Amino acid sequence: MLQIRFICVGKLKEKFYKDAAGEYLKRLSAYCKTELDELPESRLGDRPSPAEIDAALKAEADGILTRLPAGAAAVALCVEGEERDSAGMAALLQKYAANGISKICFVIGGSCGLHRTIKERADVRLSMSRMTFPHHLARIMLLEQVYRAFKIAEGGKYHK
């Protein structure tokens, strides 16, 4: 069975985000083994310098790298990533499965994004859209799209 780990910087605080994440994780359990790994977001002042932001992102990256399992495909969500439609996401998951890759890690950074070392380490850089979304909402959107990808692969009615 495919194992998918979602490595996320920042904890969900709002009940509606927690409820949505819980619902999609429950739905995904029929298709794969999931794990949600939350790291604390680095604290920055109101007007951090570029050096302070880089140091915070590096600290978060160090934590992310320790959580990437050996042999896992890493998919980093970042603005410079490739946009895929839902069928493209399904094709990505199917490609990994067909190539014998049983572990996939999706990585979502905090409010300042991801450090370049994570983007360079990633097998795939994925962009949700050219629009900007809060990282907590991006997590819910990703969970939904992974669920949709499984429904597409099985030919279910969920995807229209």
Rank of each mutant, 00 (worst) to 15 (best):
E14W: 06
Q3W: 13
G10S: 07
C32K: 02
K103F: 08
K157R: 14
V75G: 02
P134K: 03
A20E: 04
S102G: 14
I140M: 05
I118D: 08
L39Q: 02
E60N: 03
R139H: 02
P50A: 09
F106M: 07
L92Q: 11
A30D: 15
I108Q: 01
D46K: 07
L25D: 01
D85Q: 08
E82S: 11
K15H: 07
A153C: 09
G45W: 01
R116P: 06
M1V: 10
I104H: 00
T66Q: 13
L36T: 00
F6C: 02
S29G: 12
L126Y: 05
E14M: 11
R130S: 07
I4L: 06
S111L: 12
M1W: 06
K33G: 15
G109W: 02
P134Q: 08
F6Q: 04
A55R: 12
A122H: 08
G156S: 13
T66C: 05
G109D: 13
A72V: 10
M1P: 11
E120Y: 07
A30W: 10
M141I: 15
E154D: 10
S102Q: 13
R43W: 11
P50C: 04
V79R: 15
E144F: 05
V79A: 15
L77C: 06
E14I: 14
R67L: 10
K26E: 13
S29V: 08
K33I: 10
G71N: 05
R27H: 06
Y31S: 03
L28G: 03
K157A: 11
A138M: 10
G81K: 01
L44H: 01
A21K: 00
E60C: 00
K103A: 13
I7N: 03
G45M: 02
I7V: 14
K18E: 15
I108R: 00
D62S: 12
F150L: 06
P134L: 12
A20V: 04
A74L: 12
T34Q: 03
L36I: 08
M131A: 08
S42P: 01
M128G: 00
G45A: 07
F150R: 00
D46E: 15
I104G: 01
G81H: 00
Y96F: 14
E82K: 14
K33Q: 14
S127T: 06
G155H: 02
A61H: 03
E144W: 07
Q94I: 11
R43D: 10
T66V: 11
K33E: 15
S127A: 14
A91K: 09
A91I: 03
I118L: 12
K33Y: 10
E14F: 07
T132N: 10
I104T: 14
L92V: 04
K15W: 11
H115N: 06
I4E: 10
L142N: 01
G88P: 00
V124D: 12
G155I: 09
